[in-house]
Design a binder for these strands. Structure first.
Length: 202
DNA sequence: CCCTGATTCGC
DNA sequence: GCGAATCAGG
């Protein structure tokens, strides 16, 4: 496989979406995550900030104030030292994960009211699960990998989200908790209580 | 152990 | 340019 225009584009897209190299590799097929990472670096978009939202503007996705020469102030450390001097002269506040959030997927809200009638997935209905666990789950859904059925692996959380009969149905996909089929958050809510069932003693 | 991205270096 | 091997870390 070679890096055709299409493939590179896919790569750029997914990378800017925050997909991991391995996921991108799987999506593209024919390449390993190493290949993806290598390409990413060669393309010079190792920095995920290259999201370059600006849907209408943006002709210069390279806000590199490249005066003229002198593009490499610090060539290379003579020794493979890992950050010998961390001078992050962060002027304002640490722009940790700032990068605006254009929210490419304009999904207003996760409708809670789904057309009744059809059986819903395991969904943690309002049973007797600790509100905290529920909150944790809904919070985790924001970070979910949103995998499709085929993308699930032995180690991706298989918790279904949404209505299977709906376009936005996906699986959590976060790393499972050793052995379990779900991620930590979902394990917590999956292994139900059975609290009031201790009378079955024998 | 599983995973992540980063780097190196022979091809 | 490419990417496997390796590295460094979570």
């Amino acid at each position: 496989m070679s890096w055709t225009d299409e493939r590179v584009e896919m790569l750029k897209k997914m990378w800017s979406e925050g997909q991991s190299a391995s996921q991108i590799a799987k999506e593209l097929g024919g390449v390993t995550r190493n290949a993806v990472i290598g390409k990413v670096h060669r393309l010079g978009l190792s920095n995920r900030a290259g999201a370059a939202p600006a849907p209408a503007a943006a002709a210069a996705p390279a806000p590199e104030p490249k005066p003229k020469a002198e593009a490499k102030p610090a060539k290379e450390q003579p020794r493979p030292m890992r950050e010998a001097t961390p001078p992050p002269a962060a002027p304002a506040a640490a722009p940790e994960e700032v990068a605006n959030d254009p929210d490419p997927a304009p999904q207003p809200l996760r409708k809670q009211i789904i057309p009744a009638g059809q059986p819903l997935p395991p969904q943690p209905s309002a049973n007797e699960i600790s509100p905290e666990a529920l909150a944790k789950v809904s919070a985790i859904e924001k970070k979910a990998k949103r995998l499709t059925l085929m993308e699930l692996t032995e180690r991706t959380c298989k918790w279904p989200v949404g209505d299977p009969a709906t376009p936005d149905f996906w699986f959590c996909g976060l790393p499972v908790q050793q052995g379990k089929p779900y991620c930590e958050a979902h394990v917590g809510v999956a292994f139900q209580p059975m609290s009031s069932r201790r009378d079955r003693r024998r």
